[in-house]
Design a binder for these strands. Structure first.
Length: 491
RNA sequence: GGGAGUGUAGCUCAGCAGGUAGAGCAACGGCCUUUUAAGCCGUAGGUCUUGGGUUCGAAUCCCAACACUCUCACCA
């Protein structure tokens, strides 16, 4: 795929590499101690104070050759700093300076100062080549813009588009905060199987894989829920897991087949306790990211100020769709008017279609949607006052479902009945009876609240990324043509 | 899978009432010791995604394929 033009540019760089070697320079460096980040150097510099030294390493992203003076913009993962290299100061290494290219990795030492225009600059008196780049970097001003290329070559995107680095470092910071927040509340982090004999805990099509030694098919998990609740039975009272789920579904700006989910379970809690945790956690995170209680998300401006809106599912349908979820003819009429093929659908499913079509896009600021129809919630305890509803909420922010939580069902009899009812309604692999889970419940699971937060979507909201692919380092892509396996010739 | 859009130099993009290609950056050669997307002079770089068709003539029009983006569908 890479043709003449490119290999010519590469050829030129290989020649420079050979020249470096002739000058006795190892173009691929080695261990280099004593560097500081660009950010640190900027932070500690004091104006009008002589003799401040600095040592940095990074990639050459801009190079301005003024003849006997060269300015380099050196970028590391904290930011950029300018190097000034003068022939007078660096006569011994001048031949090497002239062989530097955009994209090369170098380390440099020197004295700090400011130029006429006030730019903080390291006046270099020693530098080391750490890695010669054989391929040219993308255009220096626009960066790498081709969306597909950015995902395929994230290793270029990360430094060619500095916002990308900032966002992924924010992602790490957000995850740190989540872990600390939960640990402070007494939760412990656990890891449960990603490969499961029965893919349970959600309704989604799983990926199938095979274990050779046991000669069994296994599923990549679609949710950790049933294992985490087994831990409640085992006496682990506050657990959480942050890990990948896999769902064999289409891709979109809000869906990646593998995505990161945080699930937690708290013994003796309920869904109101989960609301408190959710609201407290996410407002903490929003406060850390943002300004005065609100953050932009695409065209939207989302207000995170507490308290968040709480609204019953049924009330929202009435408010935005104009009909009661108990009035099935009206619901079906509404569904039909919205273009939903409601004829063969289950009542609860029709209601949910109306909800998704009529209500969701109104839910911009954080909103807890409470009390779902029980038929939609096989793992949830029903309301004691009105068993038609389940003690469940979903949190919507920016028109997206971000969290899902409920009072866990701990009655083994009801759980078994729900599984059986689900089995009757489902096609293909969507549901399998997990008898061992029912057995676990028979030993007694404490009443508990459980919560799942879609981490990727949360990070989208907190970092103003409107595509999930911008918060996942390597989103799933169709392999490039030359990576695809040979296709059988048959049509 | 449906709909809309995109595919031109290494990168970012022009060119599309049909007459076989342009700019900026990057590259190469030259000048320049305070630049900031440095500047100036010069040079080189293209099977216009692929395959058919219409035409005297196609980057441009038509058909098909491939890839990507957005969107809908699938997704409790």
């Amino acid at each position: 795929m890479q043709h003449k033009g490119l290999s010519k540019l590469e050829q030129q760089r290989r020649e420079k590499l050979a020249k470096l070697q002739q000058l006795g320079v190892d173009p691929y460096g080695g261990r280099y101690d004593g560097t500081e980040s660009a950010e640190t150097v900027r932070g500690r510099y004091v104006d009008n104070q002589e003799g401040q030294r600095a040592c940095v390493a990074g990639r050459i992203t801009l190079l301005r050759d003024i003849g006997k003076l060269v300015f380099i913009t050196l970028r590391d993962w904290t930011g950029a700093i300018q190097l000034g290299i003068s022939k007078q100061l660096l006569a011994a290494q001048w031949d090497i300076v002239k062989l530097l290219d955009l994209g090369d990795l170098i380390a440099a030492k020197g004295t700090l100062g400011r130029t006429k225009t006030g730019e903080l600059t390291i006046w270099v008196d020693m530098f080391t080549v750490l890695a010669k780049a054989l391929l040219p970097p993308p255009e220096k001003f626009h960066g790498l813009a081709d969306v597909d290329l950015r995902y395929r070559q994230r290793y270029v995107d990360l430094w060619a588009n500095p916002d990308v680095m900032v966002r992924f470092r924010q992602r790490c910071q957000i995850l740190d905060t989540i872990r600390r927040f939960l640990q402070d509340r007494g939760f412990v982090e656990v890891e449960t199987p990603m490969m499961q004999a029965i893919a349970g805990g959600a309704a989604a099509r799983p990926f199938i894989t095979h274990h050779n030694a046991l000669n069994i098919d296994l599923y990549l998990r679609i949710a950790p829920e049933l294992f985490l609740k087994r831990l409640l039975v085992g006496g682990m009272e506050r657990v959480f897991e942050i890990n990948r789920n896999f769902r064999n579904e289409g891709l979109s700006t809000r869906h990646n087949p593998e995505f990161t989910m945080m699930e937690l379970y708290q013994a003796y809690g309920d869904y109101h306790a989960m609301m408190e945790i959710t609201e407290s956690l996410i407002t903490t995170l929003a406060g850390q990211q943002g300004t005065n209680g609100s953050l932009p998300f695409g065209e939207l401006n989302i207000r995170y100020a507490r308290p968040w809106r709480k609204a019953r599912y049924a009330d929202l349908v009435k408010e935005y769709a104009g009909c009661s979820i108990d009035d099935l003819p009206a619901i079906r009429a509404k569904a039909k008017s919205m273009g939903i093929a409601e004829a063969g659908m289950d009542d609860a499913v029709v209601i949910n279609e109306v909800f998704e079509g009529a209500v969701e896009h109104h839910l911009v600021d954080p909103t807890f949607v409470m009390d779902y129809p029980a038929a939609l919630c096989p793992l949830t305890r029903r309301s004691k006052t009105d068993p038609r509803y389940a003690e469940r909420f979903e949190l919507y922010i920016g028109r997206m479902e971000v969290a899902n939580a409920y009072t866990e069902l701990n009655d083994p009899q009801v759980q078994e009945d729900n599984f059986l009812r689900q089995l009757r309604g489902q096609t293909e692999t969507m549901a399998t009876m997990d008898e061992d889970f029912v057995t676990a419940l028979k030993y007694g699971m404490p009443p508990a609240g459980g919560l799942g937060i879609g981490i990727d979507r949360l990070i989208m909201l907190l970092t103003n990324a409107t595509s999930i692919r911008d918060v996942i380092l390597f989103p799933l892509l169709k392999p490039a043509p030359n990576e695809l396996p040979e296709e059988p010739a048959a049509e």
